[in-house]
Each structure stands twice: as C-alpha cells, then as structure tokens.
C-alpha cells in the first residue's frame, strides 16, 4: 500500500457500501487509482460501475466505507467539490453546450474575466482563455480542430475530443471517462484511446469505464471487474484474456472463493 511514490494510490476507496433503499448497489467495494496508470472498470449493465463512479465523484453519498484521496480521508459532497480537488469526469452524454465553441465549453463555469473593474462587471478575458486552451492542448498533444467553431459544426469524434480535453485541462489528479468510446467511429475511437495514453503519460491517472473489451484490453494497465455491486476480479491485461474478463462480468465461470481471494488481494 504505502510503497513507492509510483504505485501509491491517488484515490483509494475501501469497504464502500451503498444502498438505494433496500437495494444494496455496492458491497464492500475496494477500488484504487494509482499514479501513472489507466485502470479500466468493467461490468455488465447494473453491475454498479456508474454508482461507484458517482460515489467517487461526489454525485452520490455512500453509506459505509472510506475514501482516501491524496493521502487524506475525504467525503466529496458535490461533483463541484470533487472537481475542486482535481478529479474530472467525462460523462457518457458529453455534457457540452452545442451552440458554444470549444474554448467556451472548455472554460464553461470557470471563465476568466479581464482584470480590473470591467472584470468585476463580468467581462470575459477571451484572449487568455483561447491562449491557455491552445497551450494546454498542445502540451497534451490533444488535437481539437476549429477551437472557435460551434460544437454543432464538429463531428462526434471531435466533440468527444473537446469533452475529453476539458476534463484533461482541469484534472490535476484523476480523469474519469464514462464510456468515452461509445457511439464513435473507428478513427475517433483510436483518437480517444490515444488521448487516454497521453493523459496517463502526462502523469494523470485515468479511470476508463467501458463495455468494450477490445478497447479495454488495448489501453488499460489494470482491469477491475464489477459484478452485482462487488469487485469480483482484478486482471492484468498482459496476461489475462478477454474471456477471463467476460466470465468475471457474467459470473458464467464459477469462481471459487479461493481464486476470488487470490485475484482480489494480490
């Protein structure tokens, strides 16, 4: 746990339980995000992926358990709170404003205002926002074409690029991506997977939630399998196969308690 700086978790959730009324959505979930990795979180529909992410990002409160972030126990009471701590989420439905341009979307809710009294009146510092967007995207080798075109004029992949770029721009600790490759064409999927690697290589760990096993195995450094609200497996994509992951997700291969112990408490 408290090993080298490289493997020390940035975010560690342990023993998380979450109930929706009588329904137990998460059962004793342990999940951690370590520096310099892409950790995939996979599971069937209803396995608890979204619930876990919502708990981690302050969208939902949890009932019991502990979340340690940057070495300190935390309880985020809103997504804004989590964002202030440097955790950014790319949502499945993108959450961009289609009539605004890329710079406006990337700075939405965090606009810079010009210095002085005009800034107090709300005047936007558009040059600075544009410049910083260009700089940051260049640093991360993220390509967003037409920074000042309305999002409606961009393709689906380009919009996804902006949504990811926004998360990357503001995330100082963790980026969470919820199904970022869903509904994209082959070329755009490649771009998004590249982007995830670039983010990781820039030192920010990525949590990658997906149904798509080939994408997961292509990019992830570690795979955590959720089933029925429990973590049932942790796989190393270098040695495990897609079949291993699918059987973990569906429970089709009976896992003995012993093997389960072995995979979880490695």
């Amino acid at each position: 746990m408290d090993g080298s700086q490289m493997t020390a978790p940035v975010l560690r959730a342990s023993g998380i339980n979450k109930y929706f009324g009588p329904v137990r959505a998460l059962t004793d979930v342990d999940f951690e995000v370590r520096r310099g990795e892409i950790v995939a979180l996979i599971g069937d529909n209803g396995a608890g992926k979204s619930t876990l992410i919502n708990v981690l990002t302050g969208v939902l409160p949890f009932d019991t358990g502990e979340i340690v972030f940057d070495g300190r126990p935390v309880r985020f009471d809103s997504p804004q709170d989590a964002r202030r701590h440097g955790i950014e989420t790319v949502y499945q439905d993108l959450a961009i404003a289609p009539h605004l341009d890329a710079v406006a979307n990337i700075f939405l809710g965090r606009e810079y205002r010009v210095p002085g009294p005009l800034g107090a009146l709300g005047f936007l510092d558009r040059k600075r926002m544009r410049r910083e967007t260009e700089e940051q995207l260049a640093r991360l080798k993220v390509r967003v074409p037409g920074l000042q075109r309305r999002m409606t004029t961009l393709s689906g992949g380009q919009r996804q690029g902006v949504a990811v770029a926004r998360a990357v721009m503001w995330a100082s600790k963790v980026v969470i991506m919820d199904e970022p490759t869903a509904a994209l064409g082959v070329a755009q999927i490649g771009q998004v997977l590249d982007l995830m690697r670039q983010v990781r290589d820039a030192g920010i760990p990525v949590v990658f939630i997906s149904h798509n096993m080939p994408h997961v195995f292509e990019v992830a450094d570690r795979i955590v399998v959720l089933r029925l609200g429990q973590v049932v497996q942790e796989l190393d994509p270098k040695t495990a196969t897609i079949d291993d992951a699918v059987s973990g997700m569906t429970g089709s291969v009976g896992m003995t308690a012993a093997r389960r112990e072995a995979t979880i408490d490695r």
């Binding site: 949502y91 961009i96 404003a97 605004l100 809710g109």
Partner: peptide, 18 residues
C-alpha cells in the same frame, strides 16, 4: 455566456457548476 450555455444545454451548464 451563461445565457447561451443554459439555452444550449442546461444539464451541461448545471454539471459545470452554473
């Protein structure tokens, strides 16, 4: 800016804290 954002995608505006 917020006027456009709210009309363009109110859910997105909410999510970024507007």
């Amino acid at each position: 800016r917020y006027t456009y954002a709210v009309g363009s995608n109110a859910a997105a505006a909410r999510r970024v804290g507007i």
